[in-house]
Design a protein around this nucleic acid. Structure first.
Length: 678
DNA sequence: CTACCGGAACTTTTT
DNA sequence: GTTCCGGTAG
């Protein structure tokens, strides 16, 4: 870990600046976190109470890291500072001030897949009522997920539906009227259910700031606001920041326009370009890279040199040199997987632990073949990004049950949970949900009217009602005890419903342990949706924490991280840039920055892999294949700074390199045995 | 009305 | 692999 004992003059200037608002333009690896940490410590040492400092970071993890490091420098006084994502902070402020908006403080928060589910529910309702009953063959409609994406894009970029459809979803254009009606109904449903989605959190915060009394309160609450990764904020977030800073707190923003990779979430690097003028801010630029060797920097500088419109800076490094970045052309995907394993093991043998190495991918499934190879060789790894833990069915089942306890008007939660009852499908669930929500006390209503509403399932329904009522009774206690109570009902249901139920129940065990440390059910639920565990939903979860493991991560999730050895795979056109992103020039530029972010994660060694042949069928018996081109961003100028190699089939890693698994072996046997009993 | 099966179409990145 | 649709049996 880099931790400069002495700050560079530029860093020192950024840390101690006290003339007003400040923008720190910090290139990749220039000690951005160290600088921000030092500034935080400096402010507290200078007498600013920690709780009057607000840190807006890209993930809660980043906030925690910042705090932990500042505590090392400045001691306990630092803890107590506010920190988290825009969404998490919005949640926290809204819990306190929601009444001003006519919103119940026990609102629940929906994640993106909940949002898609509710849209689907609403759409079906409209269908039933509107009566397109022409009976004609239903044309294929947008998937619910697509519906959610369209809506989110409209909201986040403040673009009209027609425009978004035209530009990004032309095949849905003839559904425009139906989509519009669905969106309108969706908003109404969220309001009456007391539920907010991600966009609502930001919009509601902005609305709070339009109420003069509340606005004054919020603005006077803080003396300093520090914003990390400013290049990835969207226009709404910039507005929020401006409103918050009116007549009060000073803003320090940190970012690098060359690393802006979230435009699909409406982030715009115009925010960072316009910051100095809009906030009347001083600019400090950090150009000295402390992370990478000069040869690696030469390659990454060449990648970003091809970009248009950027804040001019030239990164340099005073580190001793090692080796050139390596460009490795592989035969095909499985060759690529073998090559990665071989180099990972090589570095491990020469003293670089797996923990200090990472494989970076453009999309989550790019590592599929590699994961097979890693498993075959017993190389432990943890994957970040991609399919998430919270998206798995059994986890949603638990969370939705808890959401009813927290907010009995949560329609989507009811709709899902009722279907867990034997013999209840979508139609019954929808009808019953409507009836329950019409009652003042939905849970009591379920207990009373179960026989009438749910013939054939009345006993399980009464059991569910009793569970919910009792859970509500203890919901003032720790979240852990509520989870415990709910699982008495839920566990048997899940066991009957899912095949690999043992592993699924273990997931719930993990969640329950997490709940134990939460002060309330509301905290627990909000925490999970706003700061979900970032590893993917591999039911086994991460290996034992003290074990050494390799990291596989999407490039997006790797932002802000660094490793001694980095492997970037699938550096071919169609993958980086992604085929889906080659439509307009702006998006292609973003893909270039994505490759730049990936390559700049490396401290000492960087490998870029390009499989030249892709099989049409991944597991193909036949030999159907196509040829890939090297990523267009790896131009001659870039490759000049790299060592170019072709993998020769003769040097496959010997199978003897398989590593023994010391303690895990008996556990693995147990697992296999246990799986037989399912 | 539900449960289940088969065919067809799709498949980024994340708060 | 997943998701969505339509058909069929109970």
């Amino acid at each position: 870990m880099f931790d400069p004992v002495v700050l560079t003059p530029e860093q020192l200037r950024a840390v101690t600046y006290d003339g007003g608002n400040l923008l720190i333009v910090a290139g990749a690896g220039t000690g951005k976190t160290a600088t921000l940490t030092a500034r935080l410590a400096h402010l507290v040492a200078g007498g600013v109470p920690a709780e009057r400092i607000l840190m807006l970071t890209f993930s809660r993890r980043a906030a925690r890291e910042l705090l932990a490091r500042a505590e090392q420098a400045a001691g306990e006084a630092v803890s107590g500072a506010w920190g988290g994502t825009f969404h998490a902070v919005a949640n926290r402020l809204l819990r306190r001030h929601s009444r001003a908006l006519g919103l119940s403080p026990s609102f629940t928060v929906m994640d993106q897949s909940d949002s898609a589910d509710l849209l689907d529910l609403v759409r079906k309702d409209l269908e039933g009522a509107g009566g397109d009953g022409s009976g004609g063959p239903q044309r294929r409609r947008a998937r619910k997920r697509t519906l959610a994406d369209i809506r989110s894009r409209c909201v986040n970029t403040s673009t009209t539906l027609s425009e978004v459809l035209r530009a990004h979803y032309p095949w849905c254009a003839d559904e425009r009227a139906e989509i519009k009606a669905t969106f309108e109904a969706y908003t109404g449903r969220k309001r009456s259910n007391g539920v907010l989605d991600y966009d609502d959190l930001l919009l509601s915060w902005a609305t709070l700031l339009r109420l003069p009394d509340v606005a004054t309160l919020l603005q006077r609450q803080f003396d300093h606001i520090l914003v990390d990764e400013y290049q990835d904020t969207n226009p709404l977030q910039a507005d929020l920041l401006e409103s918050m800073s009116q007549g009060g707190p000073l803003v320090t923003a940190v970012g690098d326009d060359a690393q802006s990779i979230y435009s699909f979430r409406a982030a715009t690097h115009r925010n960072i370009m316009e910051f100095p003028a809009r906030f009347g801010a001083e600019v400090v630029t950090l150009e000295r890279n402390h992370r990478s060797t000069p040869s690696l920097l030469a390659a990454t500088n060449a990648v970003i040199a091809g970009a248009k419109h950027r804040h001019p800076k030239q990164l340099w490094s005073a580190r001793r040199d090692r080796e050139l970045a390596v460009l490795l052309k592989c035969d095909d995907e499985s060759d690529q997987a073998r090559q990665v394993c071989r180099r990972v093991l090589h570095h491990q043998e020469s003293g670089t632990a797996l923990m200090s190495q990472a494989v970076l991918v453009r999309t989550a499934h790019h590592s599929d073949v590699l994961e097979l190879e890693l498993a075959a060789r017993n190389i432990p790894y943890v994957k970040f990004g991609g399919l998430r833990f919270l998206e798995t069915a059994h986890v949603k089942d638990l969370l939705c049950t808890l959401r009813i306890v927290e907010n009995p008007s949560d329609e989507l939660a009811w709709f899902r949970i009722l279907q867990l009852l034997e013999g209840v499908g979508p139609a019954t669930a929808r009808q019953v949900t409507a009836r329950l929500l019409a009652a003042p006390q939905p849970i009591d209503a379920l207990a009373c009217s179960a026989p009438e509403l749910l013939q054939g399932a009345e006993e399980p329904a009464v059991e569910l009602a009793r569970t919910l009522a009792e859970a509500v009774g203890i919901s003032g206690h720790s979240a852990g005890s509520v989870v415990q109570r709910v699982r008495i009902w839920l566990d048997p249901v899940l066991t009957a419903r899912y095949r690999k139920s043992r592993a699924r129940l273990e997931d719930l065990d993990r969640l329950q342990r997490g709940a134990d440390s939460q002060p309330s059910l509301g905290h627990f639920l909000a925490d999970l949706t706003l700061d979900p565990p970032s590893f993917s939903s591999d039911l086994a979860g991460p290996p034992h924490l003290d074990d050494d493991y390799l990291t596989i991560s999407t490039i997006h999730s790797a932002k802000g991280c660094e490793w001694d050895v980095v492997h970037v795979i699938h550096a071919t056109d169609g993958n980086i840039p992604s085929d889906l992103a080659t439509g307009d020039p702006e998006t292609v530029e973003e893909e270039r920055r994505l490759l730049y972010v990936a390559m700049t994660r490396a401290r000492n060694h960087l490998y870029v892999y390009a499989p030249l042949r892709y099989y049409v069928r991944p597991t193909g018996r036949d030999d159907a294949h196509g040829y890939a081109r090297l990523s267009r961003f790896l131009t001659a100028q870039v490759v000049d700074h790299m060592e170019e190699t072709t993998s020769s089939p003769a040097v496959h890693a010997p199978a003897a390199q398989q590593r023994p698994t010391p303690k895990a072996s008996m556990a693995a046997v147990d697992d296999m045995l246990a799986a037989l009993w399912d």
